[in-house]
Nucleic acid binder design. Structure first.
Lengths: 163, 163
DNA sequence: CAAAATTAGATTGTGCGCAATATGATTTTG
DNA sequence: CAAAATCATATTGCGCACAATCTAATTTTG
């Protein structure tokens, strides 16, 4: 699927084949940082970081999840989530409590402040949408492509989608 | 550009409008993590991390850059690059030396080991390309869209590209 | 029911990412 | 040319991300 004409050249690899600009990894890497930077000034007034905001979004989607369920949705493990959730609790957006029926589990629930933040998110989404300078259709198409990519990478898929 | 019918509803925001799956931010966030995880087993044998590998790529593109030039290319500041470059130097991939003509600058140059790694990268690119299960055309189109997005976010552009 | 295996979270250590600050070198200005 | 401003990099502190490890609770097995 990838042209091997140049890539097999180990002594003199043409700049084009390894050029950073054509590399997906760098594009995703840069876009992730750019999004992070774009969100920062919008979230700072609320004392939220970008990952914390994303975690809140999963709770708006469905409240009362366990740490494990949140981690599965976000693709994060407890080493990342535990301290992040403690900070969200410290800031008053969520509460954490052991499940009475299974003390191994910790249930994460939104506070009033956490639910109220959902309404502020509307303005944030509009601001980001404007900053991208892209139409909603364009953004949704890009989002769909990225989801396909992430899904395949995480499941170790090897099938080709070439038209 | 973005449909406001539902978004203006602050008392009862439809799940669809804020749904995580439709959000670009989460898609980019997840794809970045997925790529990181996909590269990890390929880079571990070389003792390289994903950001270190990306930094090496910029040096294959053009060797002998200053820290500032690398930071501009990568979108990283010295707080991130300084320790990363020290680790790359410790691992033997690069050398760092003050510029004799302007002692404020540090020139970063590849070692033989750093240049040799460029050849190993060919196999890594092929493995990642296969893992995505996407054609080269698909990946290049996605890459181009992401570059447009990142560029607009970083320049604070507000123009609309809606067709 | 008791021992073993499994499960859910938390903790620790290393590295990335950024803001704020510090240090030292160069350039600009008076 | 000396003081001030600027510039390049390094350092510090905080938060995210993950692997490895630890603890405690539940479930499984004999």
């Amino acid at each position: 699927m990838i042209d091997k004409r140049d890539e097999a050249e180990t002594d003199d690899i043409p700049a084009g084949m390894l050029a950073l600009d054509r590399q997906l990894c760098f594009a995703v890497y840069s876009a992730a940082h750019a999004l992070n930077r774009a969100y920062k000034p919008l979230l700072d007034p609320y004392g939220l970081t970008y990952p914390q905001y994303i975690a809140l979004m999963t709770l708006w989607e469905e409240d009362g999840r366990t740490v494990k369920a949140l981690g599965a949705r976000l693709g994060l493990d407890s080493g990342t989530l535990s301290p992040l959730l403690k900070r969200l609790e410290g800031a008053g957006y969520i509460r954490r409590a052991r499940d009475r029926n299974d003390e191994r589990q910790v249930l994460v629930t939104l506070t009033d402040k956490g639910r109220a933040m959902k309404h502020e998110a509307v303005a944030i989404r509009l601001a980001i949408g404007k900053a991208t300078g892209c139409s909603l259709d364009t953004l949704q198409a890009l989002t769909a492509d990225l989801q396909t990519l992430a899904g395949r990478l995480d499941t170790g898929a090897t099938q080709d989608d070439a038209a």
